[in-house]
Computed example of a mutant assay.
Amino acid sequence: MTAHALRGDLESTALYDLPGPRAQRRHFLYGTASTVIILGLLGWLLYLLFDTDQFTAAKWTPFEYEGIQELLLKGLGNTLKAFAYASVLSLALGAVLATGRLSAHRPVRWLCTLCVEFFRAMPVLVMIFFIFVALKVQPLPALVAGLTLYNGSVLAEVFRTGINAVDRGQREAAYALGMRKTQVMSYVLAPQAVRAMMPAIISQLVVALKDTSLGFLITYEEFLHAGKLIASNLDYDLPFIPVVMIISPIYIGMCMLLSWFATRVARRQRRSPKTDAVDIPPAGPGAVLPGQV
């Protein structure tokens, strides 16, 4: 058994009491009741869909047309493009604002705090409309800019909180060894904070992915906009239900894929020696610190 596994078993035993027979029976009853309720809701939903003839061939045959398939694929590609730009820029903006909020210079700290609080409090739809209408920006840059300002300000708080969550003794020990501030951040604080920040980061990126659907309000041809075009042009009753049944699982699948990626990254970090605590020997005369030659 490895040291990590042994430490995890000890922590789980110390922090969690195994349930007794009565608690196990109670948990089993809760789980059974929840399963029955969920299955009942799903059965009721399927009944409503069949009762309104949502699975008839006439409502699903148009999706076999090549033009409709190309429209959906184009919308999905535009959604992924907007999300890719917004996620990268949001992470970069969040890192910059978090660094400013952690700065020792008061004017820089106040300015970054003002930006974070303003853009975090402003509704993302209002920012997108303002950039698109008032500044007369094209739909894609307007959507990306609005998502970047909002999600970047939220991620800035995530980064700042994650850095501050690291034990203060780690920082003081690093400074006592003669490390510079950038070395302390790069080699001591950031690797340990990533573990705590990763779930919140992925959660915010999922929010950014779902908010790309706001692009259809400014005529950006993303996935939801493509579904709206199909629902408004196909000539049969209640067309939006089949469209929603196609679009929703794809959105859910993309969010689940992000969550799976976050879990995989977290597991690799737990196995990585760079994020493990190491014993640093006393720095003698002429000792080389990380990042120095």
Rank of each mutant, 00 (worst) to 15 (best):
L6H: 08
L15N: 13
D17T: 15
R25H: 12
R25W: 14
H27G: 07
F28Y: 07
T32Q: 09
I38R: 03
G40W: 00
L48C: 06
F63G: 02
G67P: 07
G75E: 05
G77R: 11
L89Q: 05
L91H: 11
A92P: 00
V96H: 04
R106A: 01
R106N: 00
L111V: 13
L111Y: 09
C112F: 10
E117T: 05
F119C: 08
L125Y: 13
L125V: 15
I131P: 06
V133D: 06
P139V: 02
A145K: 01
N151Q: 14
N151F: 07
L155D: 07
V158I: 15
R160P: 06
I163E: 01
V166C: 08
E172W: 03
A173V: 07
L177R: 14
T182F: 06
V188T: 06
A190L: 15
A190Y: 09
R195F: 00
Q204S: 04
S213P: 11
F216T: 08
Y220F: 15
E221W: 09
E221R: 12
H225G: 04
A226T: 10
L229D: 06
N233C: 01
D235Y: 14
V243L: 01
V243K: 03
V243D: 03
V244N: 09
I247Q: 02
I252L: 15
G253W: 12
L257A: 15
S259I: 13
A262W: 03
D276H: 14
P281C: 00
P282N: 11
G291N: 08
